Amino acid sequence: MDVFMKGLSKAKEGVVAAAEKTKQGVAEAAGKTKEGVLYVGSKTKEGVVHGVATVAEKTKEQVTNVGGAVVTGVTAVAQKTVEGAGSIAAATGFVKKDQLGKNEEGAPQEGILEDMPVDPDNEAYEMPSEEGYQDYEPEA
Protein backbone atom coordinates (compact mmCIF):
# COMPACT_ATOMS: atom_id res chain seq x y z
CA MET A 1 0.00 0.00 0.00
CA ASP A 2 2.90 2.36 0.77
CA VAL A 3 4.34 1.77 -2.69
CA PHE A 4 0.98 2.61 -4.24
CA MET A 5 0.63 5.82 -2.17
CA LYS A 6 4.22 6.82 -2.94
CA GLY A 7 3.55 6.31 -6.65
CA LEU A 8 0.42 8.48 -6.49
CA SER A 9 2.34 11.15 -4.61
CA LYS A 10 5.05 11.23 -7.29
CA ALA A 11 2.42 11.40 -10.02
CA LYS A 12 0.76 14.31 -8.23
CA GLU A 13 4.11 16.12 -8.00
CA GLY A 14 4.56 15.61 -11.74
CA VAL A 15 1.14 17.05 -12.51
CA VAL A 16 1.82 20.05 -10.27
CA ALA A 17 5.19 20.63 -11.97
CA ALA A 18 3.60 20.39 -15.43
CA ALA A 19 0.85 22.82 -14.44
CA GLU A 20 3.44 25.26 -13.14
CA LYS A 21 5.42 25.07 -16.41
CA THR A 22 2.22 25.66 -18.40
CA LYS A 23 1.36 28.63 -16.19
CA GLN A 24 4.87 30.02 -16.70
CA GLY A 25 4.57 29.59 -20.48
CA VAL A 26 1.25 31.42 -20.57
CA ALA A 27 2.72 34.24 -18.47
CA GLU A 28 5.68 34.52 -20.87
CA ALA A 29 3.36 34.56 -23.88
CA ALA A 30 1.26 37.29 -22.27
CA GLY A 31 4.39 39.30 -21.53
CA LYS A 32 5.60 39.02 -25.12
CA THR A 33 2.15 39.99 -26.38
CA LYS A 34 2.20 43.07 -24.15
CA GLU A 35 5.67 43.93 -25.46
CA GLY A 36 4.42 43.64 -29.00
CA VAL A 37 1.36 45.81 -28.38
CA LEU A 38 3.52 48.51 -26.78
CA TYR A 39 5.84 48.25 -29.77
CA VAL A 40 2.90 48.80 -32.13
CA GLY A 41 1.79 51.84 -30.13
CA SER A 42 5.20 53.46 -30.51
CA LYS A 43 5.44 53.02 -34.28
CA THR A 44 4.69 55.66 -36.87
CA LYS A 45 2.14 55.29 -39.66
CA GLU A 46 4.61 53.40 -41.87
CA GLY A 47 5.66 51.00 -39.15
CA VAL A 48 2.31 50.00 -37.70
CA VAL A 49 1.55 47.25 -40.17
CA HIS A 50 4.97 45.71 -39.57
CA GLY A 51 4.46 46.12 -35.81
CA VAL A 52 1.19 44.17 -35.87
CA ALA A 53 2.99 41.34 -37.67
CA THR A 54 5.70 41.47 -34.98
CA VAL A 55 3.06 41.06 -32.25
CA ALA A 56 1.67 38.01 -33.99
CA GLU A 57 5.11 36.51 -34.54
CA LYS A 58 6.28 37.04 -30.93
CA THR A 59 3.07 35.54 -29.63
CA LYS A 60 3.39 32.58 -31.98
CA GLU A 61 6.97 31.99 -30.77
CA GLN A 62 5.85 31.92 -27.16
CA VAL A 63 2.85 29.71 -27.86
CA THR A 64 5.25 26.93 -28.82
CA ASN A 65 6.43 26.91 -25.18
CA VAL A 66 2.94 26.20 -23.89
CA GLY A 67 1.50 22.71 -24.04
CA GLY A 68 -1.90 21.08 -24.20
CA ALA A 69 -5.25 22.78 -24.43
CA VAL A 70 -3.78 26.07 -23.24
CA VAL A 71 -2.28 26.57 -26.71
CA THR A 72 -5.70 26.99 -28.26
CA GLY A 73 -6.71 29.64 -25.71
CA VAL A 74 -3.43 31.53 -25.98
CA THR A 75 -3.67 31.53 -29.77
CA ALA A 76 -7.20 32.95 -29.62
CA VAL A 77 -6.15 35.62 -27.12
CA ALA A 78 -3.12 36.52 -29.23
CA GLN A 79 -5.24 36.86 -32.38
CA LYS A 80 -7.73 39.11 -30.58
CA THR A 81 -4.84 41.17 -29.20
CA VAL A 82 -3.41 41.65 -32.68
CA GLU A 83 -6.84 42.62 -34.02
CA GLY A 84 -7.26 45.06 -31.12
CA ALA A 85 -3.83 46.57 -31.76
CA GLY A 86 -4.80 47.14 -35.38
CA SER A 87 -8.07 48.77 -34.34
CA ILE A 88 -6.21 51.05 -31.93
CA ALA A 89 -3.75 51.99 -34.67
CA ALA A 90 -6.64 52.84 -37.02
CA ALA A 91 -8.52 54.79 -34.35
CA THR A 92 -5.49 56.90 -33.48
CA GLY A 93 -4.78 57.67 -37.12
CA PHE A 94 -1.46 55.81 -37.33
CA VAL A 95 -2.76 53.72 -40.20
CA LYS A 96 -5.79 53.66 -42.51
CA LYS A 97 -8.36 50.93 -41.95
CA ASP A 98 -7.78 49.54 -45.45
CA GLN A 99 -4.11 48.93 -44.55
CA LEU A 100 -4.95 46.69 -41.60
CA GLY A 101 -4.44 42.98 -42.13
CA LYS A 102 -1.75 43.45 -44.80
CA ASN A 103 1.99 43.19 -44.52
CA GLU A 104 4.48 45.61 -46.04
CA GLU A 105 4.12 44.02 -49.49
CA GLY A 106 0.32 44.39 -49.33
CA ALA A 107 -0.37 40.67 -48.90
CA PRO A 108 -3.10 39.69 -46.43
CA GLN A 109 -1.89 38.70 -42.96
CA GLU A 110 -5.01 36.85 -41.91
CA GLY A 111 -4.42 33.26 -40.97
CA ILE A 112 -1.00 33.75 -39.38
CA LEU A 113 -2.10 31.94 -36.25
CA GLU A 114 -5.09 30.02 -37.58
CA ASP A 115 -2.95 27.84 -39.87
CA MET A 116 -0.64 26.81 -37.04
CA PRO A 117 -1.12 23.07 -36.36
CA VAL A 118 -2.41 22.69 -32.81
CA ASP A 119 -3.66 19.58 -31.05
CA PRO A 120 -4.92 20.18 -27.49
CA ASP A 121 -4.48 16.48 -26.68
CA ASN A 122 -0.87 16.43 -27.96
CA GLU A 123 -1.66 13.29 -29.96
CA ALA A 124 -1.00 14.26 -33.58
CA TYR A 125 -0.36 17.30 -35.68
CA GLU A 126 -1.74 17.99 -39.12
CA MET A 127 -0.20 20.29 -41.67
CA PRO A 128 -2.23 23.34 -42.77
CA SER A 129 -4.37 22.92 -45.88
CA GLU A 130 -2.62 23.24 -49.21
CA GLU A 131 -5.34 25.38 -50.81
CA GLY A 132 -3.15 28.48 -50.76
CA TYR A 133 -0.06 26.72 -52.12
CA GLN A 134 0.98 26.67 -55.77
CA ASP A 135 3.03 23.98 -57.44
CA TYR A 136 6.54 25.12 -58.19
CA GLU A 137 8.13 24.07 -61.43
CA PRO A 138 11.75 25.16 -61.88
CA GLU A 139 12.71 26.74 -65.15
CA ALA A 140 14.86 24.55 -67.41
Results as ranks from 00 to 15, higher is better:
77 V>T: 03
105 E>Q: 11
135 D>K: 05
59 T>G: 05
28 E>I: 05
19 A>I: 05
136 Y>E: 03
42 S>W: 15
87 S>F: 06
100 L>F: 02
138 P>D: 07
132 G>T: 14
76 A>C: 10
64 T>Q: 09
139 E>D: 11
19 A>L: 15
124 A>R: 08
73 G>N: 09
16 V>I: 15
13 E>G: 05
2 D>Q: 13
127 M>D: 05
32 K>I: 10
5 M>V: 08
135 D>N: 13
61 E>N: 06
83 E>I: 14
107 A>F: 04
108 P>Y: 10
128 P>W: 08
133 Y>T: 08
89 A>G: 05
34 K>R: 04
128 P>C: 05
56 A>Y: 13
49 V>D: 01
27 A>S: 05
53 A>V: 14
12 K>R: 13
61 E>T: 05
96 K>G: 13
15 V>K: 00
52 V>W: 15
62 Q>H: 05
47 G>Q: 14
116 M>H: 14
102 K>S: 01
31 G>L: 11
86 G>T: 09
120 P>V: 05
62 Q>F: 08
89 A>S: 05
44 T>L: 09
1 M>F: 00
1 M>Y: 00
72 T>Q: 12
97 K>M: 07
130 E>G: 13
81 T>G: 04
28 E>G: 03
117 P>F: 09
23 K>H: 05
42 S>A: 14
22 T>Q: 00
51 G>S: 03
76 A>Y: 15
86 G>V: 15
72 T>L: 12
33 T>L: 06
49 V>M: 13
133 Y>Q: 08
64 T>D: 04
68 G>Q: 04
128 P>T: 07
65 N>K: 09
82 V>W: 12
50 H>D: 06
100 L>Q: 08
39 Y>G: 03
105 E>W: 02
53 A>D: 02
87 S>I: 15
21 K>R: 15
137 E>V: 05
109 Q>R: 10
113 L>Y: 10
30 A>D: 00
67 G>Q: 13
2 D>W: 02
72 T>K: 06
39 Y>V: 05
16 V>P: 00
115 D>V: 08
36 G>K: 15
126 E>Y: 06
7 G>N: 15
65 N>S: 12
122 N>R: 13
70 V>C: 04
58 K>L: 10
104 E>R: 09
87 S>L: 15
77 V>S: 02
11 A>K: 00
135 D>Q: 09
61 E>G: 06
114 E>L: 10
38 L>N: 04
100 L>R: 11
85 A>L: 14
75 T>R: 05
136 Y>P: 08
80 K>V: 08
10 K>W: 04
75 T>N: 06
91 A>N: 06
75 T>L: 14
62 Q>C: 11
134 Q>M: 14
61 E>V: 07
86 G>W: 15
20 E>L: 13
81 T>E: 02
3 V>R: 15
52 V>H: 01
15 V>F: 02
123 E>L: 10
117 P>A: 05
92 T>H: 03
91 A>T: 05
55 V>L: 14
14 G>F: 15
6 K>R: 04
79 Q>N: 07
45 K>T: 12
11 A>M: 15
134 Q>P: 09
4 F>C: 01
32 K>D: 00
84 G>N: 10
7 G>H: 04
57 E>T: 07
126 E>C: 13
109 Q>C: 07
14 G>C: 12
82 V>P: 02
130 E>H: 09
25 G>E: 08
79 Q>I: 09
66 V>K: 02
20 E>Y: 13
106 G>Q: 06
128 P>F: 06
6 K>A: 06
58 K>W: 11
39 Y>L: 11
60 K>P: 01
96 K>Y: 14
41 G>Y: 09
5 M>H: 00
7 G>V: 13
3 V>T: 00
90 A>I: 06
31 G>V: 03
8 L>T: 00
24 Q>A: 09
30 A>K: 02
31 G>A: 08
125 Y>R: 06
118 V>S: 10
91 A>K: 04
75 T>V: 15
37 V>E: 00
133 Y>P: 11
74 V>G: 02
43 K>E: 00
123 E>N: 08
35 E>V: 07
41 G>S: 10
5 M>L: 00
33 T>V: 14
84 G>R: 13
74 V>M: 13
119 D>M: 09
123 E>P: 09
58 K>E: 01
58 K>H: 09
29 A>Q: 02
117 P>E: 02
66 V>A: 05
137 E>H: 08
107 A>M: 07
40 V>P: 00
107 A>S: 10
84 G>C: 13
65 N>I: 13
41 G>V: 12
123 E>K: 11
113 L>T: 08
10 K>V: 15
93 G>Y: 08
40 V>T: 01
11 A>C: 15
48 V>Q: 00
3 V>D: 01
80 K>T: 04
66 V>M: 12
43 K>T: 04
38 L>K: 09
60 K>E: 01
69 A>H: 10
99 Q>N: 13
27 A>N: 08
67 G>C: 11
17 A>I: 06
66 V>E: 01
38 L>R: 10
106 G>Y: 12
96 K>V: 12
139 E>V: 11
95 V>W: 14
126 E>F: 03
36 G>P: 01
21 K>E: 00
23 K>E: 00
98 D>T: 15
85 A>S: 04
80 K>R: 10
109 Q>W: 12
139 E>Q: 04
3 V>W: 02
8 L>P: 00
74 V>W: 14
35 E>F: 14
89 A>P: 03
103 N>P: 11
23 K>T: 04
101 G>Q: 12
4 F>N: 00
140 A>S: 09
35 E>A: 05
104 E>I: 06
51 G>V: 14
110 E>R: 10
134 Q>A: 06
74 V>H: 01
69 A>M: 04
96 K>H: 09
19 A>S: 02
71 V>R: 09
103 N>H: 07
126 E>V: 11
88 I>C: 04
19 A>H: 05
119 D>E: 07
93 G>M: 03
98 D>G: 13
43 K>H: 04
89 A>H: 04
122 N>S: 08
6 K>W: 02
124 A>T: 02
17 A>D: 02
44 T>P: 01
12 K>Q: 05
86 G>A: 09
135 D>L: 10
60 K>C: 06
37 V>A: 04
11 A>Y: 03
35 E>Y: 13
92 T>Y: 07
78 A>C: 07
120 P>K: 08
117 P>L: 05
100 L>M: 06
21 K>P: 00
72 T>R: 13
20 E>F: 14
52 V>F: 04
114 E>C: 14
65 N>G: 11
100 L>I: 05
52 V>Y: 15
96 K>C: 15
62 Q>W: 06
77 V>Q: 02
9 S>T: 02
74 V>K: 01
48 V>G: 01
127 M>C: 08
83 E>H: 08
34 K>V: 15
109 Q>S: 10
139 E>L: 05
54 T>A: 12
108 P>F: 07
41 G>K: 02
107 A>D: 09
47 G>H: 13
125 Y>F: 06
21 K>T: 06
93 G>W: 11
35 E>L: 12
67 G>I: 11
10 K>L: 14
25 G>L: 13
7 G>M: 06
26 V>L: 12
25 G>Q: 15
105 E>L: 09
127 M>R: 05
121 D>G: 12
139 E>F: 14
100 L>V: 09
76 A>R: 10
38 L>P: 00
69 A>F: 11
92 T>Q: 03
30 A>W: 11
138 P>N: 04
125 Y>T: 10
9 S>H: 09
112 I>K: 04
71 V>D: 01
38 L>I: 04
57 E>D: 07
57 E>C: 04
80 K>D: 02
136 Y>A: 07
4 F>P: 00
110 E>Y: 07
2 D>I: 03
78 A>W: 15
11 A>Q: 00
23 K>V: 05
8 L>A: 01
16 V>C: 12
57 E>Y: 05
39 Y>W: 10
47 G>I: 08
80 K>Q: 06
59 T>D: 00
43 K>C: 13
109 Q>A: 02
32 K>T: 02
103 N>K: 07
28 E>F: 07
55 V>F: 09
14 G>M: 15
44 T>Q: 01
98 D>S: 10
134 Q>K: 11
95 V>G: 08
72 T>F: 14
116 M>G: 03
19 A>P: 00
122 N>T: 09
